[in-house]
Nucleic acid binder design. Structure first.
Lengths: 225, 225
DNA sequence: CTCTGTCTACTTGTATACAACTTTGTTCCT
DNA sequence: AGGAACAAAGTTGTATACAAGTAGACAGAG
């Protein structure tokens, strides 16, 4: 499994290396505890140390590796870490919904509906990459609506990891058949419906439910692998 | 006002430049909208572009500057952004306290008491830098206790900014006299007392109160400047 | 056998060089 | 005068070179 090249269009070498290493760490090709050397990686990718160095710093900021005095050691993203990642996602979206309560969400709801349409289209075309991207966009659109610089920054700091995790889990979901895919679409539709109800408590409940459900999906996915 | 050199002991050039630029951005020496060039800054600091480049990337991750195609533009940290920063701090500490409810907080409480003692000592010695550092340590100790990798990562991503803001505000507090200083110590003592009560609701209330109080202090500090 | 000093290979941090691209100001043509 | 081509300066991204420091092996002294 490799990183979608379309997502690297116009990216620098450093960003490309970052993405590929991130994927390798998350899907377990690079195992926790392994140590990485700038020189070795640069040789592997056939580049100089500069872009590798950039990648290492980025991955360190994302918490996927730990920079030590000699060699960076892979931290990895096990089941526990993924759960914790979803903790933070819930924290963010819950906060955002709370903050948006009462404001005009008309344009937002239209955007979200459009994204759900695109998800269904991607499902019909059997395109998991596009599907995962729209899934990400759905949540990102909600978070952006809060117009809260720090929350947005927070999202950006986990965005790439979330994207990569989604990419992997979505491929699994697609492999399990139409029914599971529609289930994911339905989850988002319910979230949008709660938003349209306009009742803050209902929204909070549905966000809580969304992530509770994601937890069990994760457990399912984890126990399979 | 300059960055405490003791905090840069053993740091690389890149980290040093990062800290100095961060301080200049936060205290307004570098104003929002200004554009920074790697070459110019490297010349200013008398170094090569490498450490400057590292600094730019770090500050960009912290959201203090925005990397564009040519030249990085200063985003800055106005009153609104500081408020938003405290939103996130509340989000973190509230979550941590919630998660720790019920677990054994014996050793934690001892650590916190020690830190408060050090704060009082720093107050007595009229040492705002040490005081700010202990203030930071207090909250960091609580957050570390949750043993939640993502929350910890999240804290690390704002830690330096929080530290710098604390450094600045603490100097202001010290300038306003003994009474204000003791007020800050008292705030922390109340937080610890709530923790010792063992009642989760009481803890949540006191955390909420702590940050509500911080908001008004910020408003006060902001309206003065 | 254990401890210590040294030596080697490898690591990171920093400096410098270069290529590709963007912006801007100028000049020339209409 | 207005606009387009062009030139020049500045910018980033990447490669390479070098210095300083660290881990680990290894040999020799106690």
């Amino acid at each position: 499994m490799s990183y979608p090249e379309a997502w690297l269009r116009g990216a620098s070498l450093g960003e490309g290396i970052t993405c590929q290493l991130r994927l390798q760490i998350i899907n377990g090709t690079l195992k926790p505890g392994e140590t990485l050397s700038e020189n070795r990686i640069a040789a592997d990718f056939g580049t100089s140390r500069s872009p590798v160095r950039e990648a290492m710093k980025t991955l360190s900021n994302e918490g996927l590796i730990r920079l030590e005095r000699m060699g960076a050691v892979v931290v990895g993203l096990g089941p526990k870490e993924v759960e914790e990642l979803y903790d933070v996602r819930y924290l963010i979206e819950s906060f955002v919904q709370q903050r948006m309560a009462g404001s005009d969400t008309g344009p937002l709801k239209i955007s979200l509906q459009r994204i759900i349409d695109k998800m269904e289209l991607a499902a019909k075309h059997g395109d998991p990459v596009e599907f995962a991207f729209q899934d990400l966009s759905f949540h990102e659109t909600i978070i952006a609506e809060a117009k809260h610089s720090r929350i947005w920054q927070l999202w950006r700091s986990i965005r790439q990891i979330v994207m990569t995790v989604m990419l992997i889990t979505t491929e699994e979901v697609f492999a399990e058949g139409e029914r599971r895919i529609q289930g994911v679409v339905e989850k988002h539709r319910r979230l949008l419906q709660a938003l349209q109800s306009g009742d803050p408590d209902e929204v909070q409940r549905s966000v809580r439910h969304y992530f509770d459900d994601s937890y069990v999906t994760l457990q399912h996915s984890i126990s399979r692998s």
